[in-house]
Write a protein that binds this DNA or RNA. Structure first.
Length: 311
DNA sequence: ATGGTTTTTACTGCGTC
DNA sequence: GACGCGGTAAAAACCAT
């Protein structure tokens, strides 16, 4: 593995956007891939991910994606889009020595880079490329849209600039960044899912999440039950009608004593009721399984929802 | 660590097919 | 009898403090 390109994020249009805006030579890796992110006032290298400035990320609007097509739908309304699209620094190119071992090559190149950087790039650190790879990997494993992965990268950068990575495993911070980004983008993934897709354990990611959340004062929205409906519905193979009815139930339930209850359980209950009332019955056990909660919990959450779907 | 809350597990009874 | 469903009690897990 000596290089990865932004294209393998999702195989989508990434490839074509690597080099626009590029031109300046990166002091770090020599590639002519520096570009300016005018909005955030940083200079980023598309080849090695180097960032020359410290800058807080914009947590962006709290978009939500309501259906199964969310993955393919890349046009979202509102500001913040440019932030997303400007993050093209995902590509990494590490080392070119053919006959050293993988590890040696990686190490050598990192060291070389670090040394250069130390003289005039105090803000960067050698783990970044690895972190980016890791974030992409997790993003792929969890089927997250590009926007989410890119947000994760920004969060990682922010964490790094706050020296949050010091003393922590890169893998852990990377996984945590994905967790946060997924929530912010309305494509939430459970802690278990993140942990499963990454090397550090659940507890570690969880603890890191808390600290990151605190230290960086990130505006991480709670997982909305609505955001989970599509995924659960598709697992159950129920038509869109059910999905829509479930969303309606949840929307009308909003404001009741929903806080504290797990979003998955509420979403499950909504789908259960919606399915039943639209003539697409799925039993509580099945719905619970799809949402990863018990049937008992589905029952209990039914209490929090309106009794009838809209006519 | 603690206490309050939610979720799970396990078990029960009821109605229906 | 098997199934879906609703209820309950006790334990476990979670979260804020």
């Amino acid at each position: 593995m000596t290089s990865t390109t932004p294209a393998d994020l999702d195989g989508f249009d990434a490839e074509t956007r690597v080099d626009d805006e590029a031109g300046l030579t990166c002091p770090e890796c020599g590639a002519e891939a520096l570009y300016e992110d005018e909005r955030r006032g940083e200079v980023v290298c598309a080849a090695c991910g180097l960032v020359d400035s410290e800058n807080a990320i914009d947590p962006g609007p709290e978009w939500r994606a309501f259906d199964a097509d969310q993955r393919n739908e890349r046009s979202r309304a509102g500001p913040g889009r440019t932030v997303m699209r400007h993050d093209r620094g995902l590509g990494t190119k590490i080392g070119h020595q053919e006959n050293a071992s993988l590890q040696d090559r990686a190490r050598l190149s990192r060291m070389r880079r670090y040394q250069q950087r130390a003289t005039y790039q105090p803000g960067a650190d050698r783990g970044l490329a690895y972190a980016l790879t890791e974030i992409k990997r997790i993003g792929n494993a969890l089927d997250l849209p590009d926007e989410t992965t890119e947000t994760a990268v920004q969060i990682y950068r922010q964490a790094r600039e706050a020296e949050f990575v010091h003393g922590r495993k890169i893998e852990t911070v990377a996984a945590t960044s994905v967790l946060v980004a997924a929530r912010m983008q309305g494509t939430p993934r459970r802690l278990d899912e993140i942990a499963e897709a990454s090397e550090p354990g659940r507890d570690q990611v969880g603890a890191t999440f808390r600290k990151l959340h605190r230290d960086l004062e990130l505006a991480v929205p709670l997982t909305a039950p609505q955001d989970l409906v599509a995924a659960i519905a598709s697992q159950l193979d129920v038509p869109g009608e059910v999905e829509r009815a479930a969303l309606d139930l949840l929307d009308r339930a909003d404001g009741k004593s929903l806080s504290g209850k797990s979003p998955a359980s509420l979403a499950a209950a909504a789908i259960y009721r919606a399915a039943k009332q639209t003539g697409h019955h799925r039993n509580q056990e099945m719905v619970g399984e799809a949402a990863d909660v018990s049937a008992v919990t589905v029952r209990n959450r039914l209490e929090d929802l309106p009794a009838e779907i809209a006519a």
